[in-house]
Structures are given as C-alpha cells and as structure tokens.
C-alpha cells in the first residue's frame, strides 16, 4: 500500500473509472491539456483522448447541461467546476433540470459534478465557498463531502457508478496536506454512510470534510482532560446517515456539530431537528454548533482565521457541553 494524497486519490478514482468503463468522460474548464487547475486530471487526456477529456469554454451551465444530455445516452460524465464557487453559475441547470428529471419524467442523470471547495487557503470570497447546503436542500441530488483520501477515492467511484446526479465536494485544504495508505485497485465506499472516526462516551462531535480533522485534534485534547468525545464523519450529506448520529447521541447524550459552512441554514440545524425528533429524551444538554460566521469568506488571514472554526473554538464548545 502506498501513501497517497487526497488529490492523488481523486486522480486515481477518475483514472481507474475511465479505464474500467468507456462511458465515463470528463468535462470542464482546463481539465485536458492543463490537467485541471489543481492537476486532478493530469495525464487523463494523454491516456483517453479528446473525446473523453473535454476542455470547455468558461460556461458552467453549458458544462452541466452537456453532461446531463450526455448521460441520457448512457454516458457517465464527470463535470468539473474549476472551483466549486462557480457551481452557482450552473445553479438553475443543476437544481431545475438535473435534479428534477428522475422525479418528473423518469429520466435518470448519472452525472458527477465535482470540484475544489472550502477555505483556509486564503482564496478569498470567491474561491473558498462551501455551497453544499444549497444542494442538500434540493430533492434529487446526492451530496458527498469526504475527509480522507481513502473515502475520496471510494466515494468518487461510487458517485460515478450511481444512477443519480451526485455533487462531490473536495476540500482543497486537504488536497496536499492529508496523506494516507490506501489499497491498490478497485474499491468503493457506499454513499450515505457516516463513519465513526473515534469512539467516546461523553459527547458526540458530528463533522465532515476539513473540520473532521479539526474535530479529531480537539477530541485528542479533550481526552487528556478526561472527556471522551465520539467523532462522526458524515462523508455524505445527502442522504444523511441520521441513524449513526442518533445511535451515537443515545449513547453520549450530548451533541456538538462542527462545520466549515456558515451557521444559518447549515447542516447543524438539520441535525438538531433530527435529534429533537428521534432522541429528545436522550439529550442532556442543548445541541451546540461550531461553524463559520454568517458572513462571506474574508480574504485577509486574520479575518479568515476569525471567520473559520478551529480547534480552540471546538474545545471551548465541547467543554461547555460536557458540563451538562
């Protein structure tokens, strides 16, 4: 087994799927000759050719629309957003056309829309977004946001093979920072299943993507204080694995949600509602959340640092919650 970065895991997943299945094609801005802005598709054009690795004009609606049209003839296109921030340029195409097709006229659209998301790299307000909840709120889409190279590869493969439109968010902070040994060859990670990253009994921390790592670091720190936190990595936001969350909270009786998305309308609110519905009697304290501020992502390092959740903020909230 080799040490693989998050970025290489994405590359491997696309390469292997394209090799395995000639209906898989990649379409997006600068994905071909340049190999993608983050080099996630490096080498794919040389291997698979112009018909399968398609460089496009700067036209996100056209990219998503064309991917959808291609899928109607049995292809499985991967549409890349150069930065996930630009996905909103295709918002109508995704939420009205792609998402509703199966429900309305029995037309599945097996496409993956993927791209680099998230902050912490001083990308500023238009290269740092976490727009996942727009799409979690849209029936007909699946939304994946992994935190490890192993999951990134296995979930991307699962997404490509899924018959539904899947939005696949890749946290760019993790691209080159996280390395992991992953098995050679083919495996998939099922969509819609959360992972318990650390077991604990005093409180449950629910998180995903880059904040999962922050949560784990905080949990290690808490352990030194005698607070054993269970850390759940959601991996998939839609469909949400509420069973795993509910089971954990029934055991720990306390829940803290940590996400890099902004607070209002973030998935923490949904999780709070689910726990009220399904585990109200088990809660010893309020659901707490550590999230980004309800502002655009600011550019200057001190501002962005203030905006983002971090280990200290998680520790502070967890200590408060543990007092209940």
């Amino acid at each position: 087994m080799a040490q693989v970065t998050f970025l290489d895991a994405i590359k491997q997943a696309m390469y292997e799927e394209m090799e395995r299945d000639p209906t898989v094609v990649l379409i997006g801005e600068d994905v071909g000759v340049y190999g993608g802005a983050f080099k996630t598709s490096e080498g794919l054009l040389a291997k698979f050719g112009w018909e399968r690795v398609i460089d496009t004009p700067i036209s996100e609606s056209a990219i998503v629309g064309a991917a959808c049209g291609m899928s109607y003839l049995g292809l499985r296109p991967i549409a890349e957003m150069q930065f996930i921030d630009f996905i909103v340029c295709a918002f109508n195409q995704i939420t009205n056309f792609v998402a509703k097709g199966h429900y309305l006229w029995n037309a599945p659209a097996p496409i993956v829309i993927r791209g680099p998301a998230g902050g912490g790299v001083h990308g500023g307000p238009f290269h740092s977004a976490n727009p996942e909840m727009y799409f979690v709120h849209t029936p007909g889409l699946k939304v994946i946001y992994p935190s490890t190279p192993y999951d990134a590869k296995g979930l991307l493969k699962a997404a490509i093979r899924d018959n539904n439109p899947v939005l696949f968010f890749e946290h760019k902070f993790l691209y080159r920072r996280i390395k992991e040994e992953i098995p050679e060859g083919d495996y998939v990670v099922p969509i819609g299943k959360a992972a318990v990253r650390r077991e604990g009994k005093h409180l449950t921390i629910v998180s995903y993507a880059a904040m999962m790592h922050t949560s784990l670091e905080a949990a290690d720190e808490l352990a030194k204080e005698g607070i054993e936190a269970e850390v759940i990595d959601l991996r998939t936001l839609m469909p949400l694995d509420s069973d795993t969350i509910v089971e954990s909270v029934k055991k720990t009786n306390r829940c803290l949600v940590v996400h890099e998305d902004t607070k209002t309308g973030g998935i923490a609110g949904e999780i709070a509602a689910i726990l009220c519905e399904r585990a109200f009697g088990h809660l010893d304290g309020p659901l707490m959340r550590v999230t980004a501020l309800d502002t655009p992502v600011p550019y200057s390092p001190p501002l962005e640092e203030y905006f983002l959740p971090n280990k200290e903020k998680v520790l502070h909230a967890a200590r408060e919650l543990a007092k209940y």
Binding site: A62, A66, M70, S71, Y72, L73, L75, N92, Q93, F97
Partner: peptide, 17 residues
C-alpha cells in the same frame, strides 16, 4: 435556454457512441 447545452450533450454523446 437550458435545453441548448443539454441537447448539445445529447448530440455529443450520439457522436461519441
């Protein structure tokens, strides 16, 4: 207008196959 890129994709997939 959304159909224009969608049908472009249909046309491309048809050519591809």
């Amino acid at each position: 207008g959304d159909l224009i890129p969608v049908m472009t994709g249909v046309a491309m997939a048809g050519r591809y196959l």
